[in-house]
Amino acid sequence: MSKILIVEDEAAIRRVLKKIISEENDTYQVEEAEDGLEGIELIKNNDYDLVLCDIKMPKMDGVEVLEKAKKIKPETPIVMISGHGELDTAVNTMRLGAFDYISKPPDLNRLLNTVRNALDRKVLVVENKRLKKKVSKNYEMIGESESISHIKDIIEKVAATDARVLITGPNGTGKELVAHWLHEKSERAKEQMIEVNCAAIPTELIESELFGHVKGSFTGANKDRAGKFEAANGGTIFLDEIGYMSLSAQAKVLRALQENKISRVGSDKDIKVNVRVVAATNKDLNKEIEEGRFREDLYHRLAVILIKVPALNDRREDIPLLIDFFSKKISEEQGNPKKTFSDEAVQLLQKYDWTGNIRELRNIVERLIILGEKQISENDVKLFASK
């Protein structure tokens, strides 16, 4: 059922509009407001799929209603109703975010087409927003354990903000999945998430990788090159394994966080960046700080929100869900029918010591799918997944 509000000070016009709209579709729920102030109050307290708003009204004119309504409910389409002397104003309201305008007295076909189009647009806007918030299946977080549910709750609260997040946990637990969830559920999802594995980049190259360099700044710097912070501008940069970053690079990252600007290696020119920083590590950074290998001030800048991802051994109740998920995904990748696991096979896998965490579990599931029978049995697990 679509909910429509008519904001119009002339009772006769309100009646005509309501009659036309209600007769077009009996599922439309039409409400009325006799002036702009009443209209704004109703918009604040209700979720309308469409607002029809007169321009010239006492107490608060339609332009002001439009401006306030777009701040309160930006997704709600607003159609302006204009008299003959108000057409210029009606056209200007389009620049302020109005969906369309109709003239008095309203033409039946024009009115109904505008209503239908506006309602269709509202559906599309809501669906697009839902899809943006839906995390890509490539980065699903599988599990219903208390620890995973807690992480999901934190992500829901934090994703829409620009708060920096530090993700900790052993290797193979899925720290990068948490980072992707944070990005894809944020308002920055339309921009890139740039990933940097700090442990995989040689110490002498990490600064160039992060901040770029200018031609001639070091041997091999044959041309100017932008770094990862510039590439992530407007989006998110994910600094994975940040515990391996050199102290000199840490100092530059700290400056980027403090001042929202960086400088390329070999240059004194500042470059402004608007980047959300998410970091992850398998190291105990407090111990690294004590031993002088990690800056305490950088730690506090990064750890505004701290998310600890548990080892798989600490969330064994999620193993059946993970096995089912990996079995389906791997079978699809290989173009084969999904293989199932017997209850006994799953129970045996739940007892294993998963030192490699989720990454190890996925490898074992893939091995069993390749080597095991149509239904993976307890015997298959003993033969092909012995630890």
Score class of each variant (00 low, 15 high):
residue 193 M to W: 00
residue 328 K to E: 13
residue 123 V to M: 14
residue 379 N to M: 09
residue 333 E to R: 06
residue 269 K to T: 09
residue 229 F to C: 06
residue 231 A to V: 09
residue 18 K to V: 07
residue 370 I to T: 13
residue 204 E to S: 15
residue 303 A to Y: 03
residue 188 R to M: 10
residue 343 D to V: 12
residue 259 E to Y: 09
residue 48 Y to C: 05
residue 7 V to I: 15
residue 189 A to N: 14
residue 265 V to F: 06
residue 369 I to D: 01
residue 283 K to Q: 13
residue 13 I to E: 02
residue 344 E to A: 14
residue 237 I to A: 03
residue 123 V to H: 15
residue 255 R to C: 02
residue 197 N to R: 06
residue 181 W to V: 09
residue 137 K to I: 11
residue 331 S to V: 11
residue 103 S to I: 15
residue 373 E to H: 11
residue 250 Q to M: 01
residue 125 V to W: 06
residue 22 S to A: 14
residue 286 N to K: 14
residue 218 F to Q: 01
residue 358 I to R: 00
residue 365 V to R: 02
residue 149 S to V: 02
residue 53 C to R: 01
residue 174 G to I: 10
residue 383 L to W: 10
residue 173 T to L: 08
residue 376 I to E: 01
residue 210 L to V: 05
residue 322 L to W: 01
residue 124 L to Q: 12
residue 114 T to S: 10
residue 8 E to M: 04
residue 349 L to K: 03
residue 211 F to Q: 04
residue 23 E to I: 14
residue 358 I to F: 06
residue 272 K to P: 15
residue 24 E to A: 13
residue 14 R to S: 13
residue 353 D to K: 15
residue 340 T to C: 08
residue 357 N to F: 08
residue 326 F to I: 03
residue 177 L to V: 15
residue 18 K to C: 07
residue 123 V to F: 14
residue 375 Q to H: 11
residue 8 E to L: 02
residue 141 M to S: 02
residue 331 S to Y: 07
residue 259 E to W: 06
residue 73 K to F: 05
residue 377 S to Q: 04
residue 166 L to Y: 00
residue 115 V to P: 00
residue 323 I to M: 05
residue 386 S to E: 11
residue 2 S to W: 04
residue 3 K to D: 09
residue 92 N to P: 07
residue 339 K to A: 04
residue 18 K to Q: 12
residue 130 R to E: 15
residue 46 N to P: 10
residue 333 E to F: 04
residue 273 V to F: 10
residue 137 K to M: 12
residue 51 V to H: 08
residue 73 K to T: 01
residue 80 M to C: 09
residue 109 N to Y: 13
residue 317 E to V: 08
residue 67 E to R: 14
residue 281 T to C: 05
residue 144 E to Q: 12
residue 143 G to D: 02
residue 22 S to G: 07
residue 41 E to P: 07
residue 2 S to R: 11
residue 227 G to R: 02
residue 77 P to N: 00
residue 112 L to H: 04
residue 268 D to F: 12
residue 101 Y to S: 05
residue 325 F to K: 07
residue 269 K to M: 08
residue 195 E to R: 11
residue 98 A to G: 02
residue 198 C to V: 00
residue 41 E to F: 04
residue 179 A to Q: 05
residue 81 I to N: 04
residue 34 E to F: 09
residue 250 Q to I: 01
residue 51 V to A: 09
residue 222 N to H: 12
residue 35 D to C: 08
residue 1 M to E: 13
residue 326 F to E: 05
residue 381 V to D: 03
residue 104 K to W: 03
residue 356 G to F: 05
residue 324 D to V: 13
residue 310 P to R: 02
residue 77 P to E: 00
residue 320 P to W: 08
residue 88 D to Q: 13
residue 252 K to G: 08
residue 317 E to P: 01
residue 250 Q to R: 01
residue 240 D to Q: 04
residue 384 F to E: 08
residue 336 N to W: 14
residue 181 W to R: 11
residue 106 P to E: 03
residue 9 D to K: 09
residue 373 E to L: 08
residue 116 R to L: 06
residue 194 I to N: 03
residue 310 P to D: 08
